[in-house]
Structures are given as structure tokens and as C-alpha cells.
Computed example of a mutant assay.
Amino acid sequence: MSVHGDVDLGHTVAGWTGTTLAGLGCTAAGAGLCLGLTWGAWLGALLLVAAVLGTWILHLAGWGKPSGPRPAGQWDWRVRDAGARHGHPGCVGCRLAGRPGAARGTSRAHRSPVPRPLSGSPVGAEDGPRTARVPAGR
């Protein structure tokens, strides 16, 4: 178990690269504006564009991740996404790149199961109480 608990935080090569470039771009643009250096503001703007394009390219190359949680074996930031070649369902970046899985809403990547209510009627059903039932023994 990590410091953050047992969750998938989505740390990926694409994410770290994009965050670093965007941080440097904001710093350069802010310093350029405060100091009155036009070239500093333009350098920051170029770094922000590089952050967007670099993150997108790395995501398409498999160094990002699909939306939603991943299986625990793929939580390490150095693991490549095997389903990136086919496109992630609902992914704007994959759709812009013309990936077939993004357009159809299908992918060969791992899908996590949909959570189900503990017992009784589904949550939000009109015929029952709106509280979740807890199984005996918990």
C-alpha cells in the first residue's frame, strides 16, 4: 500500500512530461510578464504548446493511460498502455488522431467492471428507500 492508499493515481510518462513542461511554461510566461520581457512570455507560451503536443504524442505512443482506473499491475508509471494503438473509447485525443476504437467506442484495453449495489433494489430506484443496505456481519 502506498502513501496515497490503494488507488490508481494515473502517474504516467505522458503525464509527468506534460506537467513538467506546463509548469516550466507557466513559470517562464509569468516571469516574462512580470519583468516586461516579451521573449519570456513567448517562451512560456511555446513551452505550453510543447506540453500539450508532447503529452498527446506520448499518449498515442502508449505512454499515457485510458480514462478510469487501471488494474493494479499497471499502476507503475513506466508501464506502457497496450490498448493505445487501437484507441480509447471516448478519448478526444485518440479521436483527433483517427484511432478506430475511439470513434466506435470500443477498445481492446482492460475495462473495469461496473460497480453494483450491495443488495436489494438498485441505488436511485423509485420503489425503495434511498439508503444503501449493508450486509449482516459488517
Score class of each variant (00 low, 15 high):
residue 6 D to K: 09
residue 13 V to C: 09
residue 134 V to L: 05
residue 104 R to K: 08
residue 120 G to T: 00
residue 9 L to Y: 13
residue 32 G to R: 08
residue 63 W to T: 09
residue 67 S to A: 12
residue 1 M to Y: 02
residue 18 G to R: 04
residue 42 W to S: 03
residue 34 C to Q: 10
residue 27 T to S: 10
residue 52 V to C: 14
residue 115 P to D: 04
residue 78 R to F: 10
residue 49 V to M: 14
residue 8 D to Y: 10
residue 47 L to C: 07
residue 15 G to C: 03
residue 34 C to S: 06
residue 117 P to A: 08
residue 69 P to W: 14
residue 89 P to S: 04
residue 113 P to K: 05
residue 50 A to S: 02
residue 124 G to F: 01
residue 64 G to I: 09
residue 1 M to S: 12
residue 51 A to R: 11
residue 71 P to E: 06
residue 121 S to R: 14
residue 88 H to F: 15
residue 106 T to E: 13
residue 37 L to R: 07
residue 68 G to H: 13
residue 39 W to Q: 10
residue 49 V to A: 15
residue 28 A to W: 08
residue 5 G to A: 09
residue 7 V to T: 13
residue 57 I to H: 14
residue 76 D to T: 04
residue 70 R to P: 10
residue 88 H to P: 01
residue 86 H to L: 12
residue 41 A to K: 04
residue 29 A to Y: 06
residue 135 P to M: 03
residue 62 G to D: 11
residue 92 V to F: 12
residue 113 P to N: 03
residue 4 H to P: 00
residue 20 T to F: 15
residue 25 G to N: 11
residue 27 T to V: 13
residue 36 G to T: 09
residue 63 W to V: 01
residue 76 D to K: 14
residue 5 G to W: 08
residue 83 G to M: 01
residue 119 S to D: 07
residue 20 T to H: 02
residue 97 A to T: 01
residue 47 L to T: 05
residue 103 A to F: 13
residue 72 A to C: 03
residue 102 A to I: 03
residue 35 L to M: 13
residue 77 W to L: 11
residue 63 W to F: 15
residue 45 A to R: 06
residue 24 L to S: 07
residue 125 A to V: 00
residue 31 A to S: 09
residue 92 V to C: 05
residue 2 S to M: 08
residue 76 D to E: 09
residue 104 R to N: 07
residue 30 G to S: 08
residue 98 G to I: 11
residue 108 R to C: 13
residue 39 W to P: 03
residue 122 P to L: 05
residue 101 G to P: 01
residue 56 W to A: 15
residue 130 R to D: 10
residue 26 C to P: 02
residue 15 G to F: 07
residue 37 L to A: 08
residue 61 A to Y: 08
residue 67 S to L: 11
residue 18 G to A: 09
residue 118 L to M: 07
residue 31 A to Y: 10
residue 86 H to N: 09
residue 60 L to E: 11
residue 134 V to S: 00
residue 31 A to P: 05
residue 40 G to Y: 07
residue 32 G to I: 03
residue 15 G to T: 01
residue 62 G to T: 07
residue 13 V to R: 12
residue 118 L to V: 00
residue 128 G to P: 00
residue 59 H to V: 04
residue 31 A to H: 10
residue 135 P to V: 02
residue 98 G to L: 09
residue 75 W to D: 13
residue 82 A to W: 11
residue 111 R to I: 05
residue 138 R to W: 07
residue 114 V to E: 15
residue 58 L to M: 09
residue 100 P to C: 06
residue 4 H to K: 04
residue 102 A to E: 04
residue 20 T to K: 01
residue 72 A to Q: 13
residue 12 T to I: 01
residue 26 C to I: 12
residue 33 L to I: 12
residue 56 W to T: 14
residue 63 W to K: 12
residue 137 G to K: 03
residue 20 T to I: 10
residue 35 L to W: 13
residue 22 A to Y: 02
residue 10 G to M: 04
residue 83 G to Y: 08
residue 65 K to E: 02
residue 59 H to E: 13
residue 4 H to V: 03
residue 9 L to N: 11
residue 40 G to V: 02
residue 48 L to T: 01
residue 96 L to Q: 08
residue 94 C to D: 11
